[in-house]
């Protein structure tokens, strides 16, 4: 199935959870936040949130920034 991740179409396996998906992409869960279909989800709910066709996911992290 296909989902949108950070604005790009990505293929992933059916029934995968947010936790499995972000770990497969190499993210450290402690360093990211996830928005799933425009809703911010807590880290505790990554495991029980199952991705489905057409879902829109944003994965964000901190980078250098200042003024």
């Amino acid at each position: 199935m296909e989902i949108m991740v950070n604005g790009e179409k990505v293929s992933c396996q059916e029934g995968i959870s947010v936790e499995e998906f972000v770990v497969q992409r190499g993210h450290d869960i402690r360093q990211i936040a996830v928005e799933w279909n425009e809703k911010i989800i807590s880290k505790e709910s990554y495991r029980n949130t199952v991705l489905k066709e057409g879902d829109v996911v944003e994965i964000v992290t901190f980078m250098g920034g200042g003024c």
């Binding site: 994965i59 964000v60 250098g64």
Partner: peptide, 11 residues
């Protein structure tokens, strides 16, 4: 201070 941005690649 830090900025929040899309994390397009893990690792």
């Amino acid at each position: 201070t830090l900025a929040l941005r899309r994390a397009n690649q893990g690792g």
